[in-house]
């Protein structure tokens, strides 16, 4: 798409968005990105598949904008972030990125996108409206997880090969600190009180807790569901409740999620889900969690009150990320 055309589309879209401000909020729809079938699967609140949105190649991480009128999805093999209009459920724009975008985060005002480019080992800072690259911050090889503080002043990014967390000062776009963690660090969650971030270290089967005051490792947590070996536990995706009291952690090849009391660090429950549990999302009232299972090509719905899996739904090849619009 040419830049002019893109601007035109964006402008038209802005008008549409202005005209229909509340259309896409709280629809209860579930969005799942499928890495290998190049689509976003849309499920109704009743968990019926209602649409498959064709995207650029290899869609992975997804985020809504704040008013949930747009859905952004990083497409690793086409080097773009696709923009989906939530009203029409069609791809309306593609923002070019560096090679192999994997995970991204917005600045608080959503003017900037911070995206990890897995192939050339940078955290790229993009202007959302223009697609212009503002900065390319070198990271360790294979950067993945990205998270920003709510004021946008600090970004954290993992490097899977260097076993490191890079702390980035976003005013200068420089790395100010490197924190050595376990093997193959993947994703983040942040406590709502901004006291700590948690990092999943997939291959050393650990969660690293980093004190945001000092940016030092304050705790290392390990998990072992019954009947599994430590090496089966490969944590990746996480979700945290709005009050920050509980963390849900997908345990990869151990085919479970762990539900953890954040303050005491105690495991409250292990819930059996599908094969290679990869990412996990909570709905707004935190009654259900939905887990994407990368090796069984399905999602599992977990009832949070009983801590039981209640439904598994086949979605397509290699589901990566789940988002719920409610």
């Amino acid at each position: 798409m040419t830049r002019l055309l893109k601007l035109a589309v964006t402008s038209v879209l802005a008008l549409v968005v202005l005209a229909l401000p509340a259309f896409a909020q709280g629809t209860g729809m579930i969005f799942v990105s499928n890495e290998k079938s190049h689509e976003i699967v849309v499920l109704s609140p009743e968990h019926e598949i209602i649409k498959r949105i064709e995207t650029s190649q290899r869609p992975r991480d997804m985020h809504f904008n704040a008013d949930r009128t747009l859905l952004f999805v990083a497409c690793g093999d086409d080097d773009v972030i696709d923009v989906i209009d939530m009203a029409t459920l069609e791809v309306v724009d593609s923002i070019p990125t560096g090679p192999s975008p994997e995970v991204f985060a917005f600045s608080p005002d959503e003017s900037l996108i911070y995206v990890s480019n897995e192939e050339n080992s940078t955290l790229e800072v993009l202007e959302r409206e223009t697609g212009i690259t503002v900065a390319d911050i070198p990271t360790g090889a294979e950067p993945e997880g990205v998270i920003l503080t709510p004021d946008g002043s600090v970004a954290y990014v993992t490097s899977e090969v260097a076993d490191m967390i890079h702390v980035v000062d976003t005013s200068a776009n420089v790395v100010t600190k490197n924190i050595l963690v376990g093997t193959r660090p993947r994703r983040f969650i942040m406590a709502p009180d901004e006291s700590e971030i948690w990092v999943s270290a997939e291959l050393s089967s650990e969660i690293y807790v980093i004190d945001m005051e000092t940016n030092e490792v304050s705790d290392v947590l390990e998990f072992l569901p019954p009947g599994f070996r430590p090496e089966d536990v490969t944590p990746v995706g996480m979700a945290i409740t709005a009050d920050g009291s509980k963390v849900l952690i997908s345990l990869g090849r151990a085919n479970h999620i762990a539900v953890v009391d954040r303050v005491s660090r105690e495991t409250l429950s292990y819930v059996l889900v599908g094969s290679r549990a990869w990412s996990v999302a909570l709905n707004r009232d935190e009654t259900i969690a939905i887990v994407a299972n990368g090796l069984s090509d399905d999602i599992t719905v977990v009832d949070m009150e009983s801590m039981r899996p209640v439904e598994s739904i086949p979605v397509g090849r290699v589901p990566h990320t789940v988002l719920i619009d409610d």
Partner: peptide, 9 residues
């Protein structure tokens, strides 16, 4: 691949 680590330490 390890340069960023060795620099840091």
């Amino acid at each position: 691949d390890m340069k960023i680590v060795t620099d840091a330490v």
